[in-house]
Design a protein around this nucleic acid. Sequence first.
DNA 1: CCATCTTTGTGCACGCGTTCACAAAGACAT
DNA 2: ATGTCTTTGTGAACGCGTGCACAAAGATGG
Lengths: 256, 256
Amino acid sequence: MATGRTHRPATRSRGIPEATVARLPLYLRALTALSERSVPTVSSEELAAAAGVNSAKLRKDFSYLGSYGTRGVGYDVEYLVYQISRELGLTQDWPVVIVGIGNLGAALANYGGFASRGFRVAALIDADPAMAGKPVAGIPVQHTDDLEKIIDDNGVSIGVIATPAGAAQQVCDRLVAAGVTSILNFAPTVLSVPDGVDVRKVDLSIELQILAFHEQRKAGEEAQADGAGPAAVTREESDASADQGPDGDVPAVMPA
Amino acid sequence: MATGRTHRPATRSRGIPEATVARLPLYLRALTALSERSVPTVSSEELAAAAGVNSAKLRKDFSYLGSYGTRGVGYDVEYLVYQISRELGLTQDWPVVIVGIGNLGAALANYGGFASRGFRVAALIDADPAMAGKPVAGIPVQHTDDLEKIIDDNGVSIGVIATPAGAAQQVCDRLVAAGVTSILNFAPTVLSVPDGVDVRKVDLSIELQILAFHEQRKAGEEAQADGAGPAAVTREESDASADQGPDGDVPAVMPA
DNA sequence: CCATCTTTGTGCACGCGTTCACAAAGACAT
DNA sequence: ATGTCTTTGTGAACGCGTGCACAAAGATGG
């Protein structure tokens, strides 16, 4: 019953690498902040620092969008904000439905970052009849029975699943059947979807486990390399996997 | 995949590639489900399907941990659960603090997936004096003033930041100064940390923007291939497909 | 107009991650 | 024991992503 030989390049976004796409929102956020401070232009070096990436990487990322910079000067902030927004499709309205209004679903509904980026919570859906009609974040919760109609009436193409793991696949199937082609999944389950549907998942448990792994490793190295000369603790960008080569010395862990 | 993960040197942590570490929790979840159904052994093909990955990749991942399989038979489920748990450091207790008890922080505090994986919410911290003492998920919220003492008293090394963006860096600095070396950041900000500190970020806004990009692209291609297209350019996007993965857990996580 | 200085855009090399394909290893039947 | 069958473990090829290093482009000043 294996899935057929689904041949696909895995990653190929018609010119723009997936890794670049994933960073565009980061640049956009930094640029928006600059825009609010009325900064007219910014160099790749400055913007890269604000976004926490390498400047060469940033320039290469922008090169996929076109040549929007001016040599010797930098990038026009407003123009870049517009170009990235357009590229990401944020210049249009994206109605979104959230399915599963528990603690998490409610938190998502209350999230303010939606509207600011063109995302609009079109509806909240829950399987609990007792929730029906009850307003969450000013939006009345609707029952799962009406899922298909809600999707259709609002022209929703992006769905957020915040249900328990057991219900996720079923909800996913209904969303897809109703026309949703992009899903953000918060349930700790691997979703099975047909080709043409994008799924991104966010899983707290997994994130913590990854941190635990590194934490354990750090603890082990520290105990082993007790006495080695710690290197100077330099201020770096975010996410420092912070480890040296195998035979390299172990970096200092932290101040006591 | 949706984990906000800033690519880094990605140096192999003593043999195990970062990409493999990120998948171990996925395997563990699938294996736990099998274990609960009292399945004794599983082949790489079956397990890979359950985890939504390629079987060759799974075998290579396991090969980094050692040779735990039996040719012609497969892997012993219980043994593998133990080995992966140990490798991830889940056999020990990880006290965690959550800073910022708003909608999201509360949702995280209520998340049931903590204890089941060795993570224990040691304390909830918020800057609002009005929150102090108020119980959330059965745990009384404490004030930010006591952050350092809380970290120290509980031996906390993993911190979760669920504050507004503006407060995140400050909270982060205090956590790190107090001894925290792993941070899960839900605030939409680039955190600056010293070497030796791991930061993983989860950002709903970014995830949605990435989905919007693909959604827009799909819509565009569809419109173009609608009619006079010489070659019916079909999209080749989407993710792996697999099925099942009941965990009974409720999702958690989101941006702020 | 020319020289100099700044910053972009990118060719190139390198390393990680993925996947294929197959030999080796073990189970199982005869 | 021997042969067959299943499944692991991995060598090798390939592609993507990253970052260096530099030439080209444009601004700026004399």
